[in-house]
Simulated assay, not measured.
Amino acid sequence: MDVLLGLFLFCVLLNTGAALECEICSAMGSRTCTGRMKTCAAVEETCSNTLIEVSQDEQEFPVIIKGCASFHKLITNQYYFTIGGGKIFRMSGVYCVGEACKSALPELAPIQTKPNGKQCPACHSYTSTCPDEVVQCTGSQHYCFKSVSHSVIGYPDGLDVNILMKGCTTDALCDLLNLGKYLSLPGIGNHMAGECWPAKNTCQ
């Protein structure tokens, strides 16, 4: 369904002969943002709204990012992972064109709090190493993962950082990592690559 919609939007742009323009903005602590319009590059066929939310101790911290994107790099699945210290990451995206982008908001996976009897090493660091703790997986998190991502903090003129993460996750993120693909957030060049394996039972 996503592919068919993407092809439809692409054909509309071809038929009108118009250059694609997308709103470019990001905001921390909010699910909305506004910014300037930008003419997208030829390899960017659509606009994208990406929502990331970090939850800890019943507090939620959202980040919204809007920009130009390529269909083959879009975040459209619901990614959900736990990295220890009570931190839960959820991420999803939608693509859109024109006025629809102003109200298009990705739907995040629901937070699952019930332990499922599995555990993983977990950590979160802005360096190449970090001490592991053991995190209890919950709900449909049946896999452990390790990833290194390159991000720009403080878009658009922010600081380049590498982020190391380990923890529990679902099959959606594992499918991505095990295929050697990466996540790319619109406009800020966030790339995430790593590996995934089945989580061990707590009693093992």
Rank of each mutant, 00 (worst) to 15 (best):
V94C: 11
S149Q: 07
A100L: 08
N190S: 12
G35Y: 00
F8N: 10
A100T: 08
C22T: 01
K146T: 14
V43S: 12
E21Y: 02
E21N: 07
C174D: 03
I64W: 04
Q56L: 03
V97H: 11
S140R: 11
I153E: 10
L173W: 03
Q136T: 13
T39K: 12
V43L: 08
P156I: 07
T76D: 04
K102L: 06
R31H: 09
G85H: 09
G158I: 15
V161T: 15
F8P: 01
S55H: 02
L13F: 01
G194V: 12
V135K: 00
M37P: 01
T82L: 14
E44D: 09
Q136C: 09
I153P: 00
P131R: 12
L108P: 09
I83Y: 07
S70E: 12
A69T: 04
C101W: 08
T46M: 14
V152I: 13
S149V: 06
Q59N: 10
G84M: 12
Q204R: 13
H191W: 08
C123Q: 12
L164I: 13
P156E: 10
L20C: 02
M192N: 10
C168Q: 02
C47N: 05
T34I: 04
A122F: 03
R31P: 02
T170R: 07
L177Q: 03
W197F: 08
Q59Y: 05
N178R: 12
I188K: 05
L13E: 07
